[in-house]
């Protein structure tokens, strides 16, 4: 059996949904970050898969470049996000996002 583009996309959709699950369901702020990273990775997988399955190869390889830049951006996002978690923890002594509702309207 040779994997088709569809199968890759379904795997990435599954990865995305699991990331969403982690981001939505867990109370701990770190899980939200983990979930977001997984969703981004799913998007990267899509980029690479579309690049690989394109009937005509691109020059420069756009999908690969997009994935590279997206990885760099998500690394920056992770660093800032984790720093924010630490700062929030210091201030409120909790990382439970349910208790962080200062913006409540």
């Amino acid at each position: 059996m040779t994997p088709t583009l569809q199968i890759f996309l379904i795997v990435s959709a599954a990865l995305f949904s699991i990331g969403l699950l982690a981001a939505l369901s867990r109370r701990h702020a770190i899980f939200i970050l983990i979930g977001i990273e997984m969703m981004l990775a799913a998007a990267n997988l899509n980029f690479i898969a579309f690049w690989r399955f394109a009937p005509k190869p691109h020059q420069p390889p756009v999908g690969v470049m997009l994935a590279l830049f997206s990885i760099a951006i998500s690394a920056a996002e992770a660093a800032v996000g984790l720093a924010m978690i630490i700062a929030v923890y210091r201030h409120y002594r909790t990382t439970n996002v349910d208790q962080l509702d200062q913006l409540k309207g």
């Binding site: 969403l20 981001a23 939505l24 996002v97 349910d98 962080l100 509702d101 200062q102 409540k104 309207g105």
Partner: peptide
């Protein structure tokens, strides 16, 4: 009753 709950996860769920 109030759109702004202050909970990021609610916002995220709304996005989804």
């Amino acid at each position: 009753s109030r759109a702004h709950s202050g909970q990021i996860q609610t916002y995220l769920a709304a996005l989804a």
